[in-house]
Every structure is written in C-alpha cells, then in structure tokens.
Amino acid sequence: MATALENPHPVVDLERVTKSFGARLVVDALSLQVPRGACFGLLGPNGAGKTTALRMVYGVTRPDSGSIRVFGIDVGSDPRQVRSRLGVTLQENALIEPLTPVENLAVFGRFHLLTEREIRSRTEELLDFLELRSHADVPVRALSGGFQRRLSIAQSLMNRPELLILDEPTTGLDPAVRISLWSRVDQLRALGTTVLLTTHYMEEAERLCDQLVILDGGKAVAQGSPEELIDRVLAAEALELDVRPEEDAAIVAAFGAKRSLRAGSRLILYADDAGELALRLREQRPEHRARAVRRTNLEDVFLALTGAQLEFGA
C-alpha cells in the first residue's frame, strides 16, 4: 500500500461523462474524482443514473462522450486490466444456487485466473472475514438473504481489489446485517481499499461515505462531504412543525429560517440554531407546536435537492 499512497491519480476520474440510451439522457456531463482510500457515495432517486455511472466505471457501459480513467488507465482501452484490480457487488446476487459458498468463491477466483492455491487461501480468509464459515459447505439455495449477500461481497473480494464497487449493498437486509456489513466496509478501508457505492439509505451514506455526489436526472446536483452538503444546502439544525400547508409562507417569512421544506404533514425550518427558533415560535405563535428540534441530516439534503417534496424557499 506504500506505493499506492504515492500515486497521484484519483482511483476513479470521470470528466464530463455523458451517456444516452436512445433519446433518454441517463448521465449528463458528470465529473467526479474518487481519491485513493476514500469511501465515495452516489445518491439519487431511482433512475438518476447511479447504476449506469457504476457500469461505466468498470467498462461495461461506454460513454457517448467524456473520459473515464480508473487507476489512471482509460477503461475503454484496457477493461481487462482495470477489472482485474477492482471488485463489483451487483444489486442482485448472481450466485450458483446448487453450489456451496466455497465452490462459488472458487468459480469467481478462476474468472480472475487465480491459481488453485491462491483460491484456497483467499477462500479461507474470506470465510472468516465475512463470517461465512458456519455454512461454508451448504448449497447456496439453502442460505438466508443476509448470508447470500455476504457471499456476494466475498466473491467481489476474491481478487483483493484496490477498488470495491457496491451497488446498493444493503437493500432488503435487516438492520443487524446492515450494521455488520458497514463495519466490514470500515475494515476494508483501514486496509487501504477505496470504496465506491450507491445507496438509497441516507443513514448508510452518512455512516460510510466521506464524500458523495447527489444525482438527479443524470446530473450531479451537489457534491461534497455530508457535513459540507448539510451546511451548504440547508443549515446545521432543523425544526419540525405541524402546520397546514397554507400557513407555510407566512411562518417562513415571520421566522426567517435559512431554508424550509414541506414534508408530508410537516413543515421543516432549517437554521444554525433551531432551539432559538423554537423559543421565538412559542412566544409569537403559541398555537403551533414544535414537533422536533434536531440535527439536519442527509435525508433533508436529499429531499431539498431532488425536489421530492414541495418546497418554500426563504
């Protein structure tokens, strides 16, 4: 890993990448750089272009224009070389159901042209690392969803990748499995692995990613660390109110919040000090109860940026 640190290239470097399928523009002039060792998140609503962006990184989808370099290599010119150094966990598990985890891992090792000896030693490591040993010789079709997901991740680690790509790694898993997968990602990063992931869970993005980009309609609508995005797009704290939508405009004007959002039955006001806002509200408009004073999270940022809810700007 010492040589890796001296490498000046970002692990993934997209420059103004555009891709259309027929008349549909899926990725629109997207630029992003994933520094070595980072955990980088791609967020966005369904159809925002996240999976297409990932597919372009490992060279299965070719961009219409723009450049994609991974490990400093142009993906289009040498996809084999690029893919030998990265691992991908797809949204859907692609396991061989009649075979055991050990046999499934061997199959993947052979795609990477590992020797049988390497396959055995890495299988041993991964059985421990992803806690698969208890069912190492049970056919995959008899394993639980969480177990199959861990096996899928183990598969993508068989070649000891420098870059691990995770497409919605924890969708559909129970909270205990999710938390245990998050700590595996932390461990991999401690060993120097760069991680690029997509997720629908803002909590997951906040927990794992030190940098992220929010995509909407194939465009990057915001990019930065979770804290930067919260500061830049909204404000550090949030005050949630139960008010009817007709009153939104008047309340926002009276209290001068930095930004506000309507989320279902609630109005959310954002300010650097939401407690102070709550006090003024109690004095001036006692009829409105503050439902919550809390820290702003990525979910708020996501809703504000992707316009998933009706918004009243202040």
């Binding site: 490992y58 299965v60 996809p79 084999r80 070389q81 893919r83 030998s84 691992g87 991908v88 797809l90 692609a94 993947f108 795609f111 990477h112 042209l113 598969q155 993508s156 070649n159 790509i165």
Partner: peptide, 8 residues
C-alpha cells in the same frame, strides 16, 4: 452480468 465485472 456478474462475469463481466471480472476480466472475462
């Protein structure tokens, strides 16, 4: 699809 994430 999963094979194509490897050098295959």
């Amino acid at each position: 699809e999963s094979m194509l994430t490897t050098p295959v």
